[in-house]
Simulated assay, not measured.
Amino acid sequence: MRTIREFEERLHTDFATGEIPGFVHLYAGEEASATGVCMNLTADDHIASTHRGHGHCIAKGVDPVGMMAEIWGKKTGTCKGKGGSMHIADLSVGMLGANGIVGGGGPLVCGTALAAKLRNQPFVSVCFFGDGASNQGTIFEAMNLASVWNLPVIFLAENNGYAEATSSKFSVACDNIADRASAFGMPGITVDGFDFFAVYEAAGAAIDRARKGGGPSLVEVKLSRYYGHFEGDQQTYRAPGEVQAIRDTKDCLLQFARRVTSSGEITQAELDAIDADVKALIDGSVVKAKSDPKPTEADLLTDVYVSY
């Protein structure tokens, strides 16, 4: 969670300089979701992400140094500088990719889950999607197909309350996205996305069920993003003080720290050491990304389906 937060906070600062190409959509504030889910997964399990994918990538095991180079558009990046922020992928750790298509991950995870089922492999697939994507036909079709074929899929709805600038109160007919699960013959549960332990346990139960042949589940994680839909979004659609109040009272990192230090499981000194290590990692990744080479003209037609 700390790695994701530091990565995103640094991008927030550096993107403002104008040196980073393209758009970035930051995951800060939502760290407990990706981490709580992916800690239940192995490298052989698959996830499909969204346009807000940095947190999912890091939680699934994608190298943050390679990710930073990718976002800076460098040849040393995870996808050789050709994908950028919205298209980071690493199949070696089961990360099918961030995706600029809203709701695009549903059919992808049905594919990997079907492959696992046909091969009799105990692997699961997770589709992360937002409250906006919860209204997309691709998600409905994927949930229906997953139930019909009894696929090992977890549909993970990250409800941060806003589809770009539109409140979910105006765009989602039901109070809980998870309530839609019954229409597709699967269990649904809503959890507090600011509580790492709640996410970990709920996702773990759904993943274990799918791994044992129990079929798909819909898990809704209610949380909040700290920054705009994209960097540069002034968030004028949010109430004054709304984000700061959430940072002060609900932040997932603060909640985690309070719980583990009060129980004696982890000391504050240990957490401080982790914070220092993470800061050094992210600082180093930025220094490296800035000095790494960009793709050349010779790289333009590599890594495509057809060799020219």
Results as ranks from 00 to 15, higher is better:
A163V: 05
E164W: 09
E164N: 12
E164K: 11
A165S: 13
T166F: 07
T166Y: 10
T166R: 12
S167L: 08
S167Q: 03
S167I: 09
S168I: 14
S168V: 14
S168L: 14
K169V: 13
K169G: 08
F170W: 15
S171A: 14
S171N: 09
V172N: 04
V172C: 09
A173L: 07
C174G: 07
C174E: 08
D175G: 15
D175H: 10
N176I: 06
I177A: 05
I177E: 03
I177T: 03
A178Q: 04
A178I: 00
D179K: 03
D179M: 03
S182C: 15
A183I: 10
A183N: 11
G185E: 10
G185N: 13
M186C: 13
M186A: 08
M186G: 06
M186S: 07
G188C: 02
G188L: 00
I189M: 07
T190A: 14
V191L: 08
V191C: 11
V191T: 11
D192N: 15
G193S: 11
F194N: 13
D195C: 11
D195H: 10
D195P: 09
D195A: 14
F196A: 07
F196E: 03
F196P: 03
F196H: 00
F197T: 01
F197P: 04
A198I: 12
A198S: 15
V199K: 03
Y200S: 14
Y200F: 14
Y200M: 11
A202I: 03
A202N: 09
A203L: 06
A203R: 05
G204H: 04
G204S: 02
G204V: 04
A205L: 08
A205Q: 10
A205H: 01
A206T: 07
A210E: 02
R211K: 13
R211F: 06
G213R: 07
G215H: 08
P216R: 05
L218M: 11
L218I: 03
L218D: 06
V219I: 15
E220C: 04
E220F: 02
E220M: 01
V221I: 14
K222R: 12
L223S: 15
R225E: 05
Y226P: 01
Y227G: 08
Y227F: 15
Y227A: 12
G228M: 05
G228A: 08
G228V: 06
E231D: 11
G232K: 02
D233T: 03
Q234K: 15
Q234C: 13
Q234V: 15
Q234T: 15
Q235P: 04
T236Q: 10
